[in-house]
Nucleic acid binder design. Structure first.
Ligand SMILES: [Mn+2]
Ligand SMILES: [Mn+2]
Ligand SMILES: [Mn+2]
Ligand SMILES: [Mn+2]
Lengths: 224, 224
DNA sequence: AAGATAGTTTAGGTAAGCCTAAAAATCTAA
DNA sequence: TTAGATTTTTAGGCTTACCTAAACTATCTT
């Protein structure tokens, strides 16, 4: 008798997607949004939602969108924990760049062994944030949510420290890296253009660069 | 357009099983042997063998058993490399015992990223042997085969060093551990019972213990 | 309030990887 | 050398996770 996993890889990916989309659709995540995020078709999403509802991982009423149950949220957070710990491992121990780790972690996150992930956590020194500044849930599923102030919210002459990114695309992360915009770096807004909301900033009290609104609204900041 | 892996997890497991069974059935590995090793049914094996033959990973003639092609052997060895490197990681970095790592490595071995596995290899210091004494293939697929002399082959008063195990079961590994029979340990045969081929040995020039033939023929030795 | 449109579900189908039961091939041993 | 046993293959089914096309529901526009 082989012990089969409680949740399939697909189920875990759906739960994680619903969890991620919940803040912007708290009244119910739509079929289409899930389909877009998982690069699949709406009909497939409806299929899977029914299975998740049968397993009591989501609450679902036709045409009303979907919400995680407590149990579903637990699975999503546990998957996030694994994803972020593996990302941290890849960057800190195997010297990957922060734009190279997401895809590999998409696979590693589905290795389900509590012993494994807790030992990895200890081996890494119980890190609080992943390489993109996202908080790593602890083994009891506690997740300190990000503050949501971005560079775009700063006024002229205000400064802050980079603590995370909202856009995890390789293109964006590479762009940040070439401009020295890494976690922990100090930024000060010295000018804001009205017409396109682009900002001129000083990076680390040294270089002066200018960022589009799209770039600045994806950079999470702790105000100083 | 998602890039889908060249070989499925199932395909990799079949290729690994065929590779492992080849030494004892060089003229062709039988359907039943594969089924037993993978804990599946003969009919399922026939299905998969056909798929592998279509992909030119094995040569197959009905009722004649199956042999790996060069390409198939490459995939098998690459999977072994991953399996053994992850086992080494689990024992050396996460402090698992040697009897606890196999199952987890069964999953980790299917994460297919050359960059990942080569960086892991470097991080671990390019180990040559896994926690069970099995050789780890290098990145070009070179695999130094084990010598096959076991404790059972030693004559009275001969001694050797433990370099591996043939039986990887948790029961056997735990038994060895409680008797101090670990890799690198010195053993000397001081008596052999004719009637049941059990041996009395001295472990590490200290403890005297007695081993059944079943126990001694699964312990790989380098003669001194 | 009705029709157009956008979003969602259903219907029906596919491929992978497994299964049981039955048929066919091969091996073994008298 | 041939009957019986064993092994292997085939036939037909199942589940998961996808898909397209068509039908349905909800929402927006006039
Ligand atoms: Mn994933
Ligand atoms: Mn991340
Ligand atoms: Mn495996
Ligand atoms: Mn091993």
């Amino acid at each position: 008798m082989e012990k089969s996993p409680l949740h399939s890889i697909s189920e875990e990916n759906y739960l994680k997607a619903i969890f991620a989309l919940t803040p912007t659709s708290p009244s119910g995540v739509s079929t289409n949004d899930i389909a877009k995020r998982l690069d699949t078709k709406a009909a497939s999403v409806t299929d899977m939602i029914k299975k998740l509802a049968d397993k009591k991982l989501v609450n679902y009423k036709k045409y009303q969108g979907v919400k995680l149950t407590n149990e579903g949220r637990k699975v999503a957070i546990s998957t996030l924990r694994k994803h972020r710990l593996w990302e941290y491992f890849l960057v800190e121990k195997l010297h990957f760049k922060w734009d190279e780790v997401h895809e590999i972690a998409e696979y590693l996150e589905h290795i389900n062994s509590d012993v494994l992930i807790n030992r990895l956590d200890d081996f890494l020194g119980n890190p609080e944030f992943d390489p993109h500044g996202d908080p790593i849930p602890d083994k009891d599923g506690n997740l300190t949510p990000h503050q949501n102030i971005t560079l775009n919210d700063l006024q002229k002459d205000e400064s802050g420290v980079i603590v995370g990114v909202k856009d995890h695309s390789s293109a964006y992360l590479k762009f940040l890296e070439t401009n020295g915009l890494l976690l922990g770096i100090n930024v000060k807004v010295i000018d804001i253009q009205e017409f396109d909301e682009s900002v001129k900033i000083i990076v680390n009290q040294q270089n002066e660069i200018s960022l589009s609104q799209k770039a600045s609204k994806n950079l999470i900041i702790r105000k100083l």
